[in-house]
């Protein structure tokens, strides 16, 4: 293989615990991580290496499952098994707890900001997706509770430019939501995975969505103009990557800069797929460009591409570590 994933740095991020998730700030200069130790850590580059800048403790009583930066980079949201979501405000090099969003009946599994920064979505084990509105005074108000899934909702992600929300669930389905007369409604249900859908990622243009699952596959979904002229959105599965992953695929990340697709797998491997640009757009072809089979000593939970530095990839694992990789395509 001409392409390669090379190790930049390994960080013992959440020792004696799981590292569940990592998220780059919009400027790509900070990385937030969270884990089973109930803490959020903020990592920044100093010289050639990444170091821990701040530890956010005391925000949550239980595992912090996911973290998300606001599009302006001044706020961080953390979703926890304690059924709350904390909003942190950045003050110089420090963070202060601004507010705590309550309402979910049990574990909050994911949180995501809309591209405008005015909306926030959370999802939970309680099967619901909540949309929150943020006003100029930093006040958060829940505007909608949607119950389109029949099981635990694992992940929520916003479209890169539009106010379109997608969610993935233990019920094996993906739902896409749009606002309709001040109410958020499920406008498409994407069926095809045969087990839990763990994560979703839009491509740069937002025309396609990648999903990964406990069924050991990754699927690529494409939006089609609606032929029937009705309000429902039309998304079809145009590609299934099967046979590459030995166990559950816990995360998928579509690089907005290069189009490379990275996956985090329960078989300890990190893989990167590249799209064949000559293929028919209605039948895209992805091939394995690079993989590290023992990227971590335990399950890989998350992969995240740096939004500004092409090819810089962060992964984290049940072994408590964060690893920074460089994906390089050679001529």
């Amino acid at each position: 293989m001409k392409e390669a994933l090379s190790l930049v740095q390994r960080l013992s991020a959440h020792p004696d615990s799981r590292c569940w998730f990592v998220s780059w700030s919009p400027s790509g200069t900070l990385l937030a991580s969270c884990g089973g130790d109930k803490a959020v850590r903020i990592w920044g580059r100093e010289g050639d290496s990444w170091i821990c800048k701040t530890v956010l403790q005391d925000g949550h009583q239980r595992t912090v499952r996911k973290v998300a930066w606001s599009p302006c980079g001044n706020y961080l949201a953390s979703a926890s098994f304690d059924a709350t979501t904390c909003i942190w405000k950045k003050k110089n090099d420090d963070f202060e707890s601004l507010t705590v969003l309550e309402g979910h009946e049990n574990e909050v599994k994911c949180v995501a900001w809309a591209p405008s920064g005015n909306l926030l979505a959370t999802c939970s084990r309680d099967k619901s997706v909540w949309v929150w509105e943020v006003d100029e005074e930093d006040e958060y108000e829940c505007v909608t509770v949607v119950n389109s899934h029949t099981q635990d909702v694992k992940h929520v992600v916003w479209h890169p430019t539009q106010e379109l929300l997608a969610s993935a669930s233990y019920d094996n389905n993906i739902c896409i939501y749009k606002e309709e007369d001040d109410d958020w409604e499920c406008r498409a249900t994407l069926k095809g995975h045969t087990s839990t859908v763990w994560a979703l990622s839009f491509d740069a243009a937002g025309r396609r969505l990648a999903s990964c699952s406990d069924d050991r596959t990754v699927k690529i979904w494409k939006e089609y103009p609606n032929e029937s002229g009705q309000a429902d959105l039309s998304w079809k599965c145009v590609c299934t990557l099967s046979g590459y992953h030995g166990r559950t695929v816990y995360d998928v990340a579509w690089c907005q800069l290069t189009g490379a697709l990275a996956t985090a797998c329960g078989d300890d491997a990190v893989r990167v797929f590249k799209e064949d640009e000559t293929a028919d757009p209605d039948q895209p072809v992805f091939s394995l460009a690079a993989q590290v089979t023992k990227a971590h000593t335990q399950d890989v939970n998350c992969v995240a591409w740096n939004p500004k530095e092409a090819g810089l990839l962060a992964s984290c694992s049940d072994d408590g570590d964060i690893t920074i990789w460089r994906f390089q395509e050679e001529d």
């Binding site: 499952r65 098994f81 599994k109 084990r125 635990d152 839990t196 406990d214």
Partner: peptide, 15 residues
């Protein structure tokens, strides 16, 4: 089987 294979739910149960 699905419940037992879901490590996130197992982790939450053990908390």
């Amino acid at each position: 089987n699905k419940q037992l294979a879901d490590k996130e739910r197992v982790a939450a149960a053990l908390e």
